[in-house]
Amino acid sequence: MTGQDGAYLARFLLEKGYHVLGAVRQTSAVNMSRLEELTISSEIELIGLDLLEFETIVRAVERIGAAEVYNLAAQSSVQSSFEQPLFVSDCSGMGAARILEALRIVNPAARFFQASTSAMFDNAGATSRNEASRFQPQTPYGVAKLFAHGMTVNYRQAYGLHASAGIMFSHESPLRSEEFVTRKITVGLARIKHGLLDVLELGNLDACRDWGYAPDYVEGMWQIVRSENADDYVLATGETHSVREFATLAGAALGFDLDFRGTGTAEHAFDLKSGRTIVRINPRLMRPVDLGSMRGNAEKARDLLGWKSKTAFAEMVTLMAEADERRVRDTRQ
């Protein structure tokens, strides 16, 4: 509930008139910042839940009796998944299986949504991926998510649960965690503009993603759950953009005119207005395995659900950059 998608989904469902309960990890400190930024923290009910403990999930399912269950929980940092492969496998993979089994036993009438990911696809061949494309994940995160996705399909087929998955390509927003490259860029450039950082260090500038806007995607989640028949759908924009493009647009939104020069690890971004180096490459930020350029084909979601990504890439980048500049400016006052 307290993550990017959880916060936006909670707001969306509240606007639809739902009574919304959100699961949070059973820790002493709960980060409410996203819910507070969306001004909905007082409108939802939080429940403690541990995806590693089946009994706590069963008890929660028994007590709540929810009509719809959205599993957005995961250890979602691809980089961190290389450092914690066992934990990400248990949390992101087995966690979904525990929820599905609890629903099968206690509340089989509930509709279930699994947040699947484009990281499940292979890294070769055609750049466009749809629901029939081959899965061959390249990261521990993708492997764990593929297991969760497969269990969702299995519980639908074997037990008749209304269990669906949204195979979502990257989706960003001002609520994205700063460990993701998109927020790292917008936060870093905002700090440079206000004199709090000298230079932004990035990894692979050529990495390309199909980046959409998170509020558009949570609406797709709801449409998938509300569809008459459970199924799996790709949610994507159908466009790809590089990290370099993202940084250039974010810089423009904050008043920089970035000119990328050099090649390889020597590449850097020079601001034509100030004459300063704003971005440089740090080889230590390169991933052990990086996905190539890949875009999603959301034709099925468009045709059967009427869903499409509404927010243009440049508009999303500008929204994120301006939000981070406001945050940086407010902390200095």
Rank of each mutant, 00 (worst) to 15 (best):
Q136G: 15
L52R: 14
A29S: 14
E131F: 01
A67E: 14
Q26S: 15
T56Y: 00
Q114S: 08
S133H: 02
R59W: 02
I64Y: 12
M120H: 06
Q75F: 05
Q136P: 04
S81H: 00
L103F: 08
V78H: 04
E62A: 01
A66R: 02
A132P: 00
V61K: 01
E45G: 11
L35I: 01
R129N: 06
E37N: 06
A132Y: 07
G93M: 02
N130T: 05
A67S: 08
R63D: 09
T39F: 12
V58N: 03
E131V: 00
T56L: 05
A60Y: 07
D122S: 09
C91Q: 12
P108H: 09
V58A: 08
L38V: 05
D90T: 00
R98E: 06
V24P: 06
F113L: 12
V24D: 03
A29Y: 14
N107K: 07
Q114A: 08
I99N: 04
S118V: 10
Q84G: 01
E45D: 14
V69E: 04
E62N: 05
L72I: 02
S41R: 10
Q75T: 09
A115E: 05
E36H: 08
S128H: 12
R98L: 07
D122F: 01
L49I: 03
I44M: 08
R134Q: 08
S77K: 11
E36P: 04
E45P: 10
S92R: 02
D122M: 05
L51T: 13
V69D: 11
E55L: 06
M94F: 13
A74W: 01
L72R: 05
I40Q: 09
R59Y: 08
M94Q: 13
E36N: 01
S28K: 15
A74C: 03
Q138T: 03
Q138P: 03
E43S: 14
F121Q: 04
S41V: 07
S118M: 11
E83W: 04
S89V: 04
E131M: 04
I44A: 07
F54S: 15
I64L: 12
A110R: 07
D50A: 04
Q79C: 05
S80K: 14
V61N: 01
